[in-house]
Design a protein around this nucleic acid. Structure first.
Lengths: 108, 108
DNA sequence: CGCAAAATTCGATATTTTTCGAAAGTTCAA
DNA sequence: TTGAACTTTCGAAAAATATCGAATTTTGCG
């Protein structure tokens, strides 16, 4: 009974909710400078400032305890803002480019 | 003891929190098509789709009871997303262009 | 295997948010 | 000035959220 517009509204509300917590927003901003895993480093240093960040690095950089961090990361993922990929014991996080594009388009 | 970057993060978190509720997001989207009060209507119909919306119109369009609506509007205003201006018995709402610009710049 | 590292889940608590109806405050018009 | 229209505030209850420590799971390594 709900049309696409309403679905969109619900989804964007989810996205903004994910970004509404300062800790989560910091995680998001920390990840925005990363590249997706598998990215070939370019000669241009601006192309990718840092390698991809695993969960532990985020916790260390932002001083969030593991359980809280894990919760926030789950929320960001639930909103479709970030994706994850295991690399051995670590799990890398990176921004979902599709969702990022959708949010950019939202304000236009 | 907090620098500008942290202040910015807190402020944007506030903004996203204001947009994180479906009702508030609908209010925001309803107002995005309005013009600020005092705008001279242009010949170009795309210039300003609707006149400015007062609180009551928003409640009618979006089917939100007055007390709930008033609460949500206050949240949007607290975040700096909307501004208001009394016009007789009614109170007009409109998007704050500065804040809108700031949010657009956030995703860039 | 057995241990350490990394991350998640569980359980619990304090706080915040959402929503509504009732009441109160403003403004205009008769 | 009295009443109606419009909006806000107040009070309250249910639901959601944020945070942490303890326990658990998953992975790699010696």
């Amino acid at each position: 009974m709900s049309n696409n517009r309403d679905d969109d509204i619900e989804w964007f509300a989810e996205i903004f909710k994910a970004l509404s917590n300062p800790n989560r927003l910091k995680i998001f901003l920390r990840l925005i400078t990363c590249c997706p895993p598998g990215t070939i480093m370019n000669i241009d240093p601006d192309h990718c400032e840092k390698g991809c960040a695993c969960v532990g690095e985020l916790g260390q950089d932002l001083e969030i305890v593991p359980s809280t961090l894990s919760h926030h990361i789950k929320e960001l993922r639930r909103a479709g803002l970030i994706r994850m990929q295991r690399r051995g014991q670590k799990v890398d996080c990176f921004i979902d480019p599709e969702t990022l594009k959708a949010v950019k388009n939202f304000f236009s």
